[in-house]
Design a protein around this nucleic acid. Structure first.
Lengths: 213, 213
DNA sequence: GCACACATTGACCTTTTGGTCAGTATGCGT
DNA sequence: ACGCATACTGACCAAAAGGTCAATGTGTGC
């Protein structure tokens, strides 16, 4: 036992219901967007009365914000402990693979994020400024260092990162389009590998690297 | 004078107002999504009474559908008159350039499309099946032919096309994120070139081609 | 077992939504 | 100039939205 396991029934119920509502909200918001979702749908999905949702989360905006924060703070942004000494081919390959898996397995989170961005990020602007931007700068420096060291081609690191994000997230956000064009009903296990392979092949070779074995 | 220029005032007004409403609807829908947009906002934006919007377009769904159809049918999908004899480097470079320009100059259309896809394409599914899919198959064959002829590397043409789409559309759909991370207020003229160059460099080299001069 | 704090809810409120309709304005053909 | 078809609108409606609240249920500590 690690932390304070002792928990009375009330606290447990409270936690459980809050979690229930949060999970329901994530699902509904991702499916229908902020405006398309309604508090009663979320309450129904969570199996509680609508008023109870308002008991835990003051407003729809508040609930939405909490959902976004939860998702976003759960994101290991990736590339956390990478240094200039590492092999860029290995690092980038693994990053692409990680992002593809995330897209296929947790598409709702990606879509929720996309919806928020398209809306102009009314709630996530602060997060991006405070968290994403430093992370981004750091990775910019990392990539630039690799390029300076002649380990890979010189490309604008900004656009390289955008390229990795967009290509991998495409399979979550535009799943409908992708599946329709591939004439598939849903992604298969083998698709993860094929997608990773194709993207990695293009991007890695595109910056003068080759796919690690 | 090409067609029937003669137009009485009634027809002109009708046409004008319809166009006014459509333009307003496109803007509002792209900004707020289907559910976020309201008929009164659209009417106000168009400068007509709400009831008049309903006079021309039976319902919100109908209006939304018309807006989508308008956008989508205005899309020259690109790569129209390309044959196997053409140089893939030139063709792909121009295609990327064309899509980047579109993303920067008409981001609302891209975003509207993205929103529709994330929602599961309730209205555009038919269009994709009937129009995009044949186009997609055709370009698949074209790319495959180039690869068979040894003009470029062997990559799954499906994912290559997805890669081009996603990377270019990113700058429209995720404009907020991109600008925040680049610490810019808006795209500049020079960005179109820089983006095109970076994307083209990665993708072209990634499939064994080099940027044409 | 009792009192207190917290959890839960149905009923209710206001506002906004998409949509309708009866009535009015407006340009056209005669 | 007049009558008719079409364009247009303010007022209105039912439904659904987010949100509130008084009342009721329910564990916990004493």
């Amino acid at each position: 036992m690690t932390e304070e396991i002792k928990q009375n029934k009330k606290e447990a119920t409270r936690e459980k219901n809050q979690q229930l509502i949060l999970a329901a909200a994530e699902k509904i918001f991702a499916q229908l967007g902020y405006d398309g979702a309604s508090m009663s749908m979320i309450a129904k999905e969570a199996g509680v009365a609508k008023a109870n949702v308002h008991y835990y989360f003051t407003s729809k905006e508040g609930l939405y914000e909490t959902v976004l924060e939860n998702i976003v703070s759960s994101w290991n942004l990736g590339l956390e402990e990478v240094t200039v000494e590492d092999d860029p081919a290995v690092v980038l390959y693994k990053y692409i693979q990680y992002k593809v898996i995330l897209s296929i397995e947790k598409p709702m989170q990606s879509r929720l994020f996309a919806i928020e961005m398209i809306r102009g990020a009314p709630f996530l602007q602060d997060y991006i400024r405070k968290n994403s931007r430093p992370w981004f700068r750091e990775k910019y420096e990392l990539l630039q260092a690799w390029m300076d060291a002649g380990k890979m081609d010189q490309v604008d690191p900004n656009h390289l990162l955008f390229t990795i994000w967009s290509t991998t997230q495409y399979y979550a956000d535009f799943e409908t389009e992708a599946l329709l064009l591939l004439n598939k009903y849903e992604y298969e296990e083998s698709d993860v590998k094929a997608i990773t392979q194709s993207i990695a092949q293009i991007i890695l070779k595109g910056v003068g690297l080759s796919i690690p074995k």
